[in-house]
Simulated scan of single mutants.
Amino acid sequence: MQPLTNPVKDYAWGSRTDIAALTGRPVPSPGPEAEIWFGTHPAGPSLLAADGRSLADVVGADPLGQLGPATVARHGERLPYLMKLIAVAQPLSLQVHPSAEQAVDGHSRGVYGDPWPKPELVCALTPFDALAGFRSPEQAAMLLSRLNVPALKDVVTLLEAGSLLDALHALLGRRDAIEQAVWAASAVHHPDYDLVVRLARRYPGDPACLAPLLLRRHKLAPGQALFLGAGVLHCYLDGFGVEIMGSSDNVVRAGLTAKPVDVEELLRVTDPDAGPLPVEARDGVYATPSPEFRLRRVAVDGDVRLDGGLPRILLCVEGEVRADALDLRAGDSAFVPAAHPPVTLGGSGLVFSAEPGPAGHPAG
């Protein structure tokens, strides 16, 4: 078992308090801290605290010992998951992730950096707010028509006809209607319209500010989780959580960002019928359809045993926990190779364990 040091991502939407407070550093942090990555992805691999070696190099030098024969057989000689701490202080981009087949195809065409899908699950540490999945076309048409903006009438007509993707496409091209739409939204005292105004203050003139009228809103309490498969259009709004995903950084954006957008590709991979899946923990395990990962939430109060044979990353988010002979405080993490015997957790605290998905789900 190896303690890890992990890269902090300073994206502009990140919090200056959440990650710093959890890791025991001064608050506020000097700049935004959006994510900490735990894994082997080349855009930010974890390092072994003992000698600074990349965890990706350690896995590559001994894949069978580090990952185990079962993981290698299903996923190849790579850690199939990436775990993150995600601290959202400002809304993320309106985005979607491709399927396994779309990722392979897009990677071959130079559209995606990774040939792997990016299904993901977020588990809230604090109240967590997100937009994910389309509303019914009828409800979206009603919300949009209430603004009474003539330039959006064709979008409303498409929604009334049930054409969600065509309506989204038309909406994202209506920059000329945004100022009037936001003005109208400011006069309606309702959370959906309030969110439109909030987004417009941060991204003035961006038609994606009207996304809250097309998408469903999800509010998670601490311990609740939401799974997003391929093709689910979404936007995280606020909150702090633990996220686990396929080890991929394939993201297609349509707005609410200063990063490049690709509306045509987003429309190609978005599935209007795909929605998020609320996931309840059973015996601490958040089970999803993803073969790449499984997340386990372990409330430690006395000894708890974790089976061997799987490559795990342990992350302590609360209290003081002992993993065999290794002490973990909030913010500390460790990699447990598959060849390691079962791990005994002791002490008192809260630990998340990332591991590959169970056998029975087809690998991507």
Rank of each mutant, 00 (worst) to 15 (best):
M1T: 14
P3E: 15
L4Y: 04
T5P: 05
P7A: 05
P7W: 10
K9F: 08
A12C: 05
R16G: 04
I19H: 07
A21M: 09
A21R: 09
L22T: 04
S29C: 07
P30A: 15
P32S: 14
E33V: 08
A34S: 08
A34V: 07
P42L: 13
P42S: 13
P42Q: 08
P45Q: 02
A49D: 07
D51V: 04
G52M: 03
L55C: 01
D57C: 02
D57L: 01
V58H: 00
V59S: 00
L64Y: 06
G65V: 01
A70P: 00
V72L: 01
H75N: 07
R78Q: 09
M83P: 01
K84C: 03
I86P: 00
V88G: 00
S93N: 02
L94S: 00
V96P: 00
V96L: 09
H97G: 03
S99P: 05
A100K: 08
A100Y: 08
Q102I: 03
D105F: 13
H107N: 14
G113W: 06
G113Q: 09
K118Y: 03
L125S: 00
P127L: 01
F128T: 01
L131Y: 03
L131M: 10
G133Q: 01
F134K: 03
L144K: 04
S145N: 11
K153W: 12
L158P: 02
L159P: 06
G162C: 09
D166V: 11
D166E: 14
D166F: 15
A170V: 02
A170R: 13
L172G: 03
R174S: 13
D176W: 13
A177C: 05
V182W: 07
V182G: 05
V188K: 14
D192V: 09
V197P: 02
R198I: 10
R198K: 06
R198A: 05
R198T: 13
R202P: 05
R202N: 04
Y203A: 14
P204Y: 15
P207D: 09
P207A: 11
P207E: 09
L210V: 05
L215T: 00
L220C: 08
A221S: 10
P222F: 07
P222V: 14
A225K: 02
G229H: 05
A230C: 09
Y236A: 01
G241K: 00
A254F: 05
G255R: 00
D262F: 06
E264K: 11
D273P: 03
R282L: 12
Y286Q: 09
P291Q: 11
E292S: 11
L295C: 06
V300G: 00
V304L: 12
R305F: 14
G308L: 10
G308D: 12
C316I: 12
C316M: 12
V321E: 02
R322E: 10
A325Y: 13
A330K: 14
D332R: 15
S333V: 12
F335T: 12
P337K: 15
A338V: 11
H340T: 15
L345S: 08
G349P: 10
F352M: 07
A354T: 09
E355A: 13
P356F: 15
G357E: 14
H361D: 09
G364T: 13
